[in-house]
Amino acid sequence: MTYIYSLFQYIPFIAEGVLWTASLVLGGLGIGFIIGLPLAIAQSFGGKKLGKVLNAYVWFFRGTPLLVLLSLFYWAIFPSFGFKLDPLKTSILVLGMRSGAYQSQIFKDSIKSVDYGQILAAKAIGMTQRKLILYIVLPQALRISIPAWSNEYAVILKDSAICFALGVMEILTRVRYVSTATGLALIPYLFAGILFFVLTFSGTGIMDFIHKRTRIPGMVEGLR
């Protein structure tokens, strides 16, 4: 009973981990967006040679386990370039670069689903490639990508737990401390599970709301 009482003392400590996890997720998604969208545009409109070069980036980050990426960048790549970044910044950057690779594929597929006839029509009224991407392709592709992007949020949220390997004070790292300090396992880990569930559920709920609000009237996706 004393153990359980002491567990309550740790709730604010674990809950603070939500802020760290949120930093990892939002930072990772944000950097991923900044990398992924231009990557998708370049892959879709930049020609075959550029596409192949960019594919190498995508496959490196998609094909390498996150734990390996975190270690590689924290212990080897960043230090060798003279950057001594703390575990949180390293984790956000690595999650972002990795998410960029995944997000590029989400956006690439969405861009592909904007039918080519509209691109021809935009050219026919005198739009340059830059303008047709900006005003015709992206407004539709970004809407189409919201469900898949929502999935990427859920994936990166769960992946953020792996950052405990670098000692980032996110939810799982804190739960491990609490578990060690109290000698209890079930309740702390269950609490961590509930926190992740709530974050996943609320985040995807927000994305669903945005998706519904931005839906193009009368258009059934997949039947364009």
Partner: peptide, 28 residues
């Protein structure tokens, strides 16, 4: 792109911009 503005083109497949209203399609 400048010369294309001198040519109006109407496609067989309609090709309206799905995310814009009728007036938005004309305005863009």
């Amino acid at each position: 792109t400048r010369l294309r503005q001198k040519i109006g083109f109407v496609f067989q497949e309609l090709n309206l911009f799905h995310h814009l209203t009728a007036i938005g399609n004309v305005m863009i």
